[in-house]
Amino acid sequence: MDFEPVKFLIVDDDEVSIMKIKRAIKKANLGNPVFVAMDGIEALEMLRGDAGQERITQPYIVTLDINMPRMDGHEFLKEIREDPNLHNVVVFVLTTSNSEADIQAAYEKNVAGYILKENSEYSLIEKINMLERFSNLVVLPK
């Protein structure tokens, strides 16, 4: 059985935020392939292979921001949970919003975890490491 590294799909509309995550991945010395979508619609296209996008294949995990233009995190979760091909996708919310409503809504859509994005680079690296360990230790859907 070939070892296939788990892909990360970062869904975030803030370029600096994406850069920050990428830097954290780099600083954590992880070799996982990283894909970036700027909103929910682009992420769906990438996961479905629509609109000329190359389809991302399993195994992968999604880090999802909540506040985004065009299609926000909640709408994206609703879409994939209703999609028979994508309903089992493992999603971690990675956001600055610690609003109770957001947390509640996310878990209702079966997210694997709700991670608060903090300013500290150190803590972000720690959280990225956790995601990597998680993706290695658990069996992801095929």
Partner: peptide
């Protein structure tokens, strides 16, 4: 977020 971005 913009503040964080500037700092970052």
């Amino acid at each position: 977020s913009p503040l964080d971005a500037i700092q970052d």
